[in-house]
C-alpha cells in the first residue's frame, strides 16, 4: 500500500506543470492586454506562443515575471502559487527571462555578463563566501564555447554584433540553470542565417530546460516548438503541436490572414 501511494505521489509530482496560469488578466484602463488567460506549460518542453502584434504575448511574460502586476488571476510555478512574489524573488526561484530589448550590462565584459547570470540570484552572504573570480569560472568558459563567443570573452557587451548580443542574453539567462526560461522574440532583427543559427543554438543549449518562446517568425517556431499556443486579443484561441496548428482553419483565418503557415 505504502509503495503504491508513493508511486502515485511521484507521478503526480511529474505531472505538475512547470507553469500554470488561471484566469490571468491585465487591464490598462478599459483595455485588456491579457484577458482571462488559461495556459499550461508542461515541464521539459519548448512551448511557443504566437499571435499578432498586441495579442498580449509580451504582457503575459511581464505577468509571469511580475515586471507588471496582474489585475487578476493566479500564477503557479511547479505547483507553487507565486502570484504576489516580486520580480527578484521569482528570478531566485528559477524563472529566467530574455527581454525583447537587450538587457545586458553594456559596460561589463562578455564573461562578466555571463557570470552575473550565474551569481545574480545568489544572496549577499553566499557571495561573500565565494572565492572564485569571474574570469576563471568553468561554467562561464563552457558557455562561451557553446555561444561561439570564446574569442570575445574580454570585449564589452556593447561591442558585440546584434545577433551575438541576443545569443549572449540567452546564455546569461541559462547560466543560472533556470527551471523556466522565457525568451521574448529571440530572433528579432536577425538575418535569415542568424535565425537559423539561433534555432540550432537553442536546441543545443536548452536541453530539457522548460522554455517558453514568444516569436513572430513562423518557420523558426515550427523548427523548435513542441507545443504552440496562439494568442489573440489577450486570449488563447488555439493550442497544439506545430502540425496541428498549421492545419487549424481558425488560426489561419484569425491570425494569419489566410496566409499558409
Amino acid at each position: 500500500m505504502a509503495g503504491t501511494a508513493r508511486v502515485a505521489t511521484e507521478s503526480t509530482a511529474r505531472d505538475v506543470p512547470a507553469l500554470h496560469v488561471v484566469n490571468l488578466s491585465k487591464r490598462f484602463g478599459g483595455v485588456a492586454a491579457v484577458a482571462n488567460l488559461n495556459l499550461t506549460v508542461r515541464r521539459g518542453i519548448t512551448h511557443c506562443i504566437i499571435g499578432p502584434n498586441g495579442a498580449g504575448k509580451s504582457t503575459f511574460f511581464d505577468l509571469v515575471t511580475n515586471v507588471q502586476p496582474a489585475t487578476s488571476g493566479e500564477v503557479y510555478f511547479f505547483g507553487e502559487p507565486i502570484t504576489g512574489l516580486p520580480q527578484y524573488r521569482r528570478a531566485a526561484l528559477g524563472i529566467a527571462r530574455k527581454f525583447q530589448a537587450p538587457t545586458l550590462f553594456p559596460e561589463l565584459t562578455v564573461a562578466e555578463n555571463l557570470y552575473m547570470g550565474k551569481v545574480g540570484h545568489l544572496g549577499w552572504t553566499s557571495l561573500l563566501r565565494r572565492r572564485d573570480i569571474p574570469a576563471a569560472d568553468d561554467q562561464v568558459g563552457l558557455m562561451l564555447e557553446q555561444l561561439r563567443l570564446a574569442g570575445e570573452s574580454g570585449s564589452r557587451a556593447a561591442d558585440l554584433s546584434h545577433g551575438q548580443q541576443q545569443w549572449l542574453e540567452i546564455g546569461v539567462a541559462l547560466m543560472a540553470r533556470p527551471r523556466l526560461l522565457l525568451l521574448d522574440e529571440p530572433t528579432a532583427g536577425m538575418s535569415l542565417r542568424e535565425t537559423a543559427a539561433t534555432a540550432d543554438l537553442l536546441g543545443a543549449l536548452t536541453g530539457d530546460t522548460t522554455t517558453v518562446i514568444v516569436e513572430h517568425d513562423l518557420s523558426f517556431v515550427r523548427r523548435i516548438a513542441d507545443v504552440i499556443t496562439v494568442m489573440h486579443r489577450g486570449e488563447s484561441v488555439a493550442e497544439g503541436r506545430p502540425d496541428e496548428i498549421a492545419q487549424n482553419a481558425l488560426v489561419r483565418d484569425v491570425y494569419l490572414g489566410r496566409k499558409s503557415l
Binding site: E107, L127, P134
Partner: peptide, 10 residues
C-alpha cells in the same frame, strides 16, 4: 575581482 563587486558594478 570578486562576485559581490561585480554585482555592485552591474
Amino acid at each position: 575581482r570578486t562576485a559581490p563587486g561585480l554585482r555592485l558594478r552591474a
